[in-house]
Protein backbone atom coordinates (compact mmCIF):
# COMPACT_ATOMS: atom_id res chain seq x y z
CA UNK A 1 0.00 0.00 0.00
CA UNK A 2 1.25 3.45 -0.90
CA UNK A 3 0.78 5.86 2.00
CA UNK A 4 0.81 3.10 4.58
CA UNK A 5 1.85 5.53 7.30
CA UNK A 6 -1.05 7.84 6.57
CA UNK A 7 -3.47 4.90 6.57
CA UNK A 8 -2.25 3.75 9.96
CA UNK A 9 -2.20 7.26 11.31
CA UNK A 10 -5.87 7.76 10.40
CA UNK A 11 -6.77 4.48 12.06
CA UNK A 12 -4.98 5.57 15.21
CA UNK A 13 -7.13 8.68 15.41
CA UNK A 14 -10.37 7.02 14.39
CA UNK A 15 -10.07 4.02 16.71
CA UNK A 16 -10.20 6.29 19.77
CA UNK A 17 -13.55 7.63 18.60
CA UNK A 18 -14.80 4.21 17.56
CA UNK A 19 -14.07 2.49 20.86
CA UNK A 20 -15.23 5.39 23.01
CA UNK A 21 -18.34 5.66 20.84
CA UNK A 22 -19.06 1.99 21.48
CA UNK A 23 -18.60 2.47 25.23
CA UNK A 24 -20.98 5.44 25.30
CA UNK A 25 -23.44 3.57 23.09
CA UNK A 26 -23.59 0.81 25.69
CA UNK A 27 -25.54 3.26 27.85
CA UNK A 28 -28.41 3.27 25.36
CA UNK A 29 -31.41 2.41 27.52
CA UNK A 30 -29.17 2.07 30.59
CA UNK A 31 -28.30 5.67 31.48
CA UNK A 32 -29.03 6.80 35.03
CA UNK A 33 -31.76 9.16 33.78
CA UNK A 34 -33.46 9.74 30.47
CA UNK A 35 -31.57 12.98 29.82
CA UNK A 36 -28.12 11.58 30.53
CA UNK A 37 -28.96 8.44 28.59
CA UNK A 38 -29.80 10.52 25.53
CA UNK A 39 -26.77 12.76 26.02
CA UNK A 40 -24.35 9.83 26.19
CA UNK A 41 -25.83 8.14 23.14
CA UNK A 42 -25.76 11.42 21.22
CA UNK A 43 -22.06 11.72 22.03
CA UNK A 44 -21.68 8.16 20.81
CA UNK A 45 -23.46 9.06 17.58
CA UNK A 46 -21.18 12.07 17.03
CA UNK A 47 -18.14 9.88 17.55
CA UNK A 48 -19.39 7.21 15.15
CA UNK A 49 -20.12 9.91 12.58
CA UNK A 50 -16.56 11.14 12.89
CA UNK A 51 -15.27 7.60 12.57
CA UNK A 52 -17.14 7.21 9.28
CA UNK A 53 -15.38 10.24 7.82
CA UNK A 54 -11.97 8.89 8.89
CA UNK A 55 -12.59 5.33 7.72
CA UNK A 56 -14.05 6.42 4.38
CA UNK A 57 -10.84 8.32 3.83
CA UNK A 58 -8.70 5.39 5.02
CA UNK A 59 -10.58 3.02 2.68
CA UNK A 60 -9.84 5.34 -0.22
CA UNK A 61 -6.15 5.35 0.66
CA UNK A 62 -6.06 1.56 1.02
CA UNK A 63 -7.59 1.37 -2.46
CA UNK A 64 -8.02 -2.40 -2.34
CA UNK A 65 -11.80 -2.65 -2.17
CA UNK A 66 -11.92 -2.46 1.61
CA UNK A 67 -14.87 -0.42 2.86
CA UNK A 68 -15.35 1.73 5.95
CA UNK A 69 -17.31 -1.15 7.48
CA UNK A 70 -14.53 -3.67 6.87
CA UNK A 71 -12.09 -1.41 8.65
CA UNK A 72 -14.42 -0.87 11.58
CA UNK A 73 -15.65 -4.43 11.99
CA UNK A 74 -13.16 -6.91 10.64
CA UNK A 75 -9.85 -6.23 12.32
CA UNK A 76 -8.40 -8.33 15.12
CA UNK A 77 -7.80 -6.99 18.60
CA UNK A 78 -4.10 -6.31 18.05
CA UNK A 79 -4.92 -4.25 14.96
CA UNK A 80 -6.91 -1.64 16.87
CA UNK A 81 -4.77 1.37 17.77
CA UNK A 82 -6.92 3.18 20.35
CA UNK A 83 -5.46 4.36 23.65
CA UNK A 84 -6.19 2.24 26.71
CA UNK A 85 -8.20 5.03 28.32
CA UNK A 86 -11.16 4.78 25.96
CA UNK A 87 -11.60 1.00 26.24
CA UNK A 88 -12.02 1.01 30.02
CA UNK A 89 -15.48 -0.30 30.96
CA UNK A 90 -18.47 1.71 32.24
CA UNK A 91 -18.22 0.65 35.87
CA UNK A 92 -20.44 3.49 37.10
CA UNK A 93 -21.66 6.86 35.89
CA UNK A 94 -18.82 8.79 37.55
CA UNK A 95 -16.32 6.51 35.86
CA UNK A 96 -18.03 6.88 32.47
CA UNK A 97 -18.09 10.66 32.63
CA UNK A 98 -14.63 10.90 34.21
CA UNK A 99 -13.25 8.85 31.30
CA UNK A 100 -15.14 11.04 28.84
CA UNK A 101 -13.75 14.19 30.45
CA UNK A 102 -10.14 12.95 30.43
CA UNK A 103 -10.49 12.12 26.75
CA UNK A 104 -12.48 15.21 25.70
CA UNK A 105 -9.85 17.65 26.98
CA UNK A 106 -7.24 15.82 24.92
CA UNK A 107 -9.54 15.38 21.91
CA UNK A 108 -10.31 19.08 21.72
CA UNK A 109 -6.63 20.07 21.87
CA UNK A 110 -5.74 17.39 19.32
CA UNK A 111 -8.40 18.42 16.80
CA UNK A 112 -7.47 22.04 17.19
CA UNK A 113 -3.95 21.14 15.96
CA UNK A 114 -5.16 18.67 13.34
CA UNK A 115 -7.04 21.53 11.69
CA UNK A 116 -3.62 22.82 10.64
CA UNK A 117 -2.64 19.53 8.97
CA UNK A 118 -1.20 19.81 5.48
CA UNK A 119 -3.55 16.96 4.56
CA UNK A 120 -6.68 18.79 3.47
CA UNK A 121 -9.09 15.94 4.13
CA UNK A 122 -7.83 15.50 7.68
CA UNK A 123 -7.98 19.21 8.36
CA UNK A 124 -11.55 19.37 7.02
CA UNK A 125 -12.60 16.45 9.23
CA UNK A 126 -10.95 18.08 12.25
CA UNK A 127 -12.66 21.35 11.49
CA UNK A 128 -16.01 19.56 11.45
CA UNK A 129 -15.41 17.39 14.53
CA UNK A 130 -14.10 20.11 16.80
CA UNK A 131 -17.48 21.83 16.89
CA UNK A 132 -19.12 18.67 18.15
CA UNK A 133 -16.35 17.80 20.57
CA UNK A 134 -16.55 21.19 22.25
CA UNK A 135 -20.10 20.25 23.26
CA UNK A 136 -18.84 16.91 24.57
CA UNK A 137 -16.22 18.64 26.66
CA UNK A 138 -18.75 21.06 28.13
CA UNK A 139 -21.01 18.17 29.06
CA UNK A 140 -18.36 15.96 30.67
CA UNK A 141 -16.63 18.87 32.49
CA UNK A 142 -19.98 19.89 33.86
CA UNK A 143 -20.60 16.42 35.26
CA UNK A 144 -17.14 16.11 36.79
CA UNK A 145 -17.87 19.36 38.63
CA UNK A 146 -21.39 18.35 39.63
CA UNK A 147 -20.37 15.00 41.03
CA UNK A 148 -17.06 16.20 42.47
CA UNK A 149 -18.65 19.15 44.20
CA UNK A 150 -21.80 17.18 44.99
CA UNK A 151 -22.67 14.83 47.81
CA UNK A 152 -20.13 12.91 49.83
CA UNK A 153 -20.93 9.77 47.87
CA UNK A 154 -20.79 11.38 44.42
CA UNK A 155 -17.51 13.07 45.30
CA UNK A 156 -15.99 9.79 46.41
CA UNK A 157 -17.12 8.06 43.23
CA UNK A 158 -15.70 10.76 40.98
CA UNK A 159 -12.45 10.80 42.94
CA UNK A 160 -12.15 7.01 42.63
CA UNK A 161 -12.82 7.26 38.91
CA UNK A 162 -10.16 9.92 38.35
CA UNK A 163 -7.68 8.01 40.51
CA UNK A 164 -8.05 4.78 38.59
CA UNK A 165 -8.17 6.39 35.14
CA UNK A 166 -5.17 8.64 35.75
CA UNK A 167 -2.71 5.89 34.86
CA UNK A 168 -4.04 5.90 31.27
CA UNK A 169 -3.67 9.64 30.64
CA UNK A 170 0.02 9.76 29.79
CA UNK A 171 -0.41 7.44 26.81
CA UNK A 172 -2.34 10.17 25.02
CA UNK A 173 1.00 11.97 24.58
CA UNK A 174 3.04 8.95 23.58
CA UNK A 175 4.32 9.03 20.00
CA UNK A 176 4.48 5.93 17.84
CA UNK A 177 6.85 5.64 14.87
CA UNK A 178 3.92 6.37 12.58
CA UNK A 179 3.06 9.49 14.59
CA UNK A 180 6.63 10.73 14.30
CA UNK A 181 6.72 10.16 10.55
CA UNK A 182 3.44 12.02 10.11
CA UNK A 183 4.59 14.97 12.21
CA UNK A 184 7.71 15.11 10.05
CA UNK A 185 5.54 15.38 6.93
CA UNK A 186 3.42 18.16 8.38
CA UNK A 187 0.37 15.91 8.40
CA UNK A 188 0.28 14.70 11.98
CA UNK A 189 -0.06 16.42 15.33
CA UNK A 190 2.90 16.47 17.69
CA UNK A 191 1.04 15.19 20.75
CA UNK A 192 4.03 15.71 23.03
CA UNK A 193 3.39 19.45 22.66
CA UNK A 194 -0.14 19.07 24.06
CA UNK A 195 0.82 17.45 27.33
CA UNK A 196 1.59 20.44 29.53
CA UNK A 197 -1.55 22.35 28.61
CA UNK A 198 -3.61 19.17 29.07
CA UNK A 199 -2.54 18.55 32.65
CA UNK A 200 -2.93 22.22 33.43
CA UNK A 201 -6.48 22.31 32.14
CA UNK A 202 -7.47 19.01 33.74
CA UNK A 203 -5.96 20.02 37.09
CA UNK A 204 -7.79 23.34 37.05
CA UNK A 205 -11.11 21.65 36.52
CA UNK A 206 -10.43 19.01 39.16
CA UNK A 207 -9.67 21.79 41.62
CA UNK A 208 -12.89 23.52 40.68
CA UNK A 209 -14.64 20.22 41.29
CA UNK A 210 -12.99 20.10 44.75
CA UNK A 211 -11.23 16.88 43.77
CA UNK A 212 -7.64 15.85 44.47
CA UNK A 213 -5.22 15.65 41.59
CA UNK A 214 -3.69 12.15 41.60
CA UNK A 215 -0.01 12.08 42.42
CA UNK A 216 0.87 8.71 40.96
CA UNK A 217 3.60 8.86 38.35
CA UNK A 218 3.08 5.29 37.15
CA UNK A 219 1.49 5.29 33.74
CA UNK A 220 0.18 2.43 31.63
CA UNK A 221 0.49 2.40 27.85
CA UNK A 222 0.33 -0.01 24.91
CA UNK A 223 -2.96 0.61 23.13
CA UNK A 224 -1.40 2.68 20.38
CA UNK A 225 0.81 -0.30 19.54
CA UNK A 226 -2.11 -2.73 19.70
CA UNK A 227 -1.35 -4.09 23.18
CA UNK A 228 -4.64 -3.72 24.98
CA UNK A 229 -6.19 -4.34 28.37
CA UNK A 230 -8.44 -7.37 28.72
CA UNK A 231 -11.52 -5.17 28.28
CA UNK A 232 -11.08 -4.53 24.56
CA UNK A 233 -11.66 -8.15 23.55
CA UNK A 234 -15.07 -8.21 25.19
CA UNK A 235 -15.98 -4.89 23.65
CA UNK A 236 -15.00 -6.11 20.18
CA UNK A 237 -16.99 -9.29 20.51
CA UNK A 238 -20.04 -7.08 20.98
CA UNK A 239 -19.08 -4.60 18.28
CA UNK A 240 -18.26 -7.24 15.68
CA UNK A 241 -20.97 -9.75 16.53
CA UNK A 242 -23.21 -9.19 13.49
CA UNK A 243 -20.39 -9.17 10.93
CA UNK A 244 -18.77 -12.25 12.42
CA UNK A 245 -22.01 -14.19 12.72
CA UNK A 246 -23.54 -13.15 9.40
CA UNK A 247 -20.52 -12.25 7.24
CA UNK A 248 -21.11 -9.44 4.74
CA UNK A 249 -24.60 -8.72 6.01
CA UNK A 250 -25.89 -5.27 5.19
CA UNK A 251 -28.32 -3.04 7.00
Amino acid sequence: MKNKNLYNYILGIADNSLILGQRMGELCGHGPSLETDIACTNISLDLFGQVRSYFQYAAKIAGDGRTEDDIAMLRKEREYKNVLLVEQPNTDFAFTLGRQFLFDVYHLAFLSELQKSSDLTLSAIANKCIKEVSYHERFSSDWVKRLGDGTEESKQKMQDAINSLWTYTDELFHQTEVDKAMVEEGIGVDVTQLKEEYYKKVSQLLEEATLDIPESKWFQKGGKEGIHTEHLGYLLSDLQYMQRTYPNMEW
Binding site: E35, Y135, D142
Partner: peptide, 13 residues
Protein backbone atom coordinates in the same frame (compact mmCIF):
# COMPACT_ATOMS: atom_id res chain seq x y z
CA UNK B 1 -31.93 23.94 30.42
CA UNK B 2 -32.90 20.34 31.17
CA UNK B 3 -30.15 18.64 29.17
CA UNK B 4 -27.40 19.77 26.82
CA UNK B 5 -28.42 17.00 24.45
CA UNK B 6 -32.02 16.69 23.29
CA UNK B 7 -33.85 14.31 20.97
CA UNK B 8 -30.94 14.56 18.54
CA UNK B 9 -27.32 15.68 18.92
CA UNK B 10 -28.08 19.05 17.31
CA UNK B 11 -30.61 20.03 19.97
CA UNK B 12 -30.69 20.69 23.71
CA UNK B 13 -33.70 20.07 25.92
Amino acid sequence: LVSQFGSTACKAQ
